[in-house]
Simulated assay, not measured.
Amino acid sequence: MTRVSFRGVRAVLFDLDGTLIDSAPDLGAAVDAMRIRRGLASLPPEHYRPYTGSGARGMLRAAFDISPEHEEYDALKTEFFAVYAGCLTQRTKAFDGVADLLASLVGQRMPWGVVTNKAERFTLPITRAMELFATASVVISGDTTAHAKPHPEPLLEAARRIGMAPGDCIYVGDDERDVLAGRAAGMRTVAAQYGYLGPGADASAWGADAEVSSPLQVLKLLDLP
């Protein structure tokens, strides 16, 4: 954990997948089902986990070694979304410590929210199904605004909706694009090293203001009990 203190913070915004929730099992199961349909061998969940942060692109690469340039990519992506929509919350759960982290923020009357690149058609069913998100002040999906991260607009929209200046917020995420978006929005940033760091990723090189190896370490950055 990086030993810094974020004084003056009035709100905390989080990425979703790999930061608050572990959705890798459902994402992996969806794309693995596509392999099985095609007579291919099932792959273990550990194979898919490192690619989870890249969404459909990462999952299809892990399952079929295919890139967006491939002529079959769009059809596979559409199929993946349909299969995933049917198992959104079967295996997905919050990371250890997240519930206590959010309860502490609520107890300190500090607003918190979600800013994710996950499409609203998936984000809203998940956040509505998990009691964890009942206290969220804002949920911004990848298609809520005209831009997705690393563009700062989703974070700026979240700040507007909770009535905070961007400089009063910190953003916690497990991907370099989270840090880039947070910095561009004028927020201090925290790299979640426990998340879905892709192959060869080096979170220490992203330029975040702090790094944490567990959710509860965010409280220490805020000097909250």
Rank of each mutant, 00 (worst) to 15 (best):
K149Y: 05
C169T: 08
S23W: 04
T89G: 04
Q90R: 13
V9R: 08
A30N: 07
G207V: 09
Q90N: 15
W206A: 01
G167T: 12
T19H: 04
L101N: 07
D100G: 09
T89M: 07
V139T: 11
F64K: 00
A210D: 06
V83F: 01
G55P: 14
M130V: 09
A148G: 09
L132M: 08
K118Y: 02
G142R: 03
Y171F: 11
D96W: 09
P50N: 01
A103N: 14
I140W: 02
T127M: 04
A75F: 09
G107D: 12
A203K: 03
D74K: 04
D96N: 12
G195N: 04
T144C: 10
A62H: 06
T135Q: 15
D22G: 01
D175R: 06
G28Y: 05
M164N: 06
A203C: 15
F95N: 03
G207I: 10
R183K: 15
H147G: 08
Q217W: 01
F6P: 15
P45N: 02
R177A: 00
N117W: 06
I140T: 04
P154L: 01
T92E: 10
A129C: 10
A30E: 07
L102K: 00
P44E: 03
V190H: 03
P50V: 02
A205I: 13
A210H: 04
A191V: 09
R3C: 11
G97E: 08
V12Y: 07
A56V: 04
E157H: 11
M34K: 03
A85G: 15
E176C: 06
A210Q: 00
T144V: 06
E157M: 12
A136N: 11
A63S: 02
V139H: 05
V31T: 00
T2C: 06
S54P: 08
R128M: 12
P44N: 04
A33N: 12
F64M: 04
S5W: 15
E120M: 05
F81P: 11
P225R: 00
G195M: 03
A210L: 08
L102H: 04
A29W: 07
L180P: 12
G163R: 04
R183P: 14
L155Y: 05
P25Q: 00
L222D: 11
A165Q: 15
D175W: 01
A99T: 14
T135W: 08
A201H: 04
D32R: 04
T189P: 13
I162D: 07
G55E: 01
D202F: 09
G207E: 07
A63N: 04
G182I: 09
A94S: 12
A208E: 09
L221A: 03
L101Q: 06
A146G: 13
E153Q: 12
H147I: 08
L224K: 02
G198A: 02
S214R: 02
